[in-house]
Amino acid sequence: MSTFKALSLVALMALGAAGAAFAADAKNGLGAPVGLGDKITETDIKAWDITILPDGTNLPPGSGTAAVGAKLFGEKGCNQCHGDGALGGRNGALITDQPLKGGGIEANKTVKNFWAYSTTLYDYIRRAMPWPAPRTLSNEEVYSLVAFILAGNKIIDEKTVMDARSLPQVKMPNRDNFIIKFPDKI
């Protein structure tokens, strides 16, 4: 191989660092990936990779109970927006028997009467709460707060421990009342 050819090959490999193997069907019109992205490992993305899927994928280790969650709800200031015992304050009640039916199309959607997946609670509390300091709760604290809300709504027993195995198995009461609006778009 001539020096020129060898250099070209090195250059090509550098250009296609990420994706030379699947350049054939590239849609960018260049016939090959642009290749300017920096390689990163899943390990290095871990701090951001906190989304929980409904089947429980990505739930972290640890566990929590309603009793601990009830205590945390006051300690972490959740009650400042959601009221003592999560019964409602400046923002909505997290524990309530308010029905969906009879409320019209404007009915208040609650954890009990609407949310289809228990994993949404874990994902959202860990991601966005407490409002002034999101992503500061430990995995155990999130499990406990989820357990507190689910038990308060009588969706699980007071004693049921929430962890990566038990949480996705909780069937939310309204799970089967949804229709996919645009199935052809998926």
Partner: peptide, 15 residues
């Protein structure tokens, strides 16, 4: 996820 008159709801409303 819009609630419908029969209290079912649309899961996703893309368009």
């Amino acid at each position: 996820s819009p609630v419908l008159p029969d209290y079912t709801a649309y899961k996703f409303y893309f368009v």
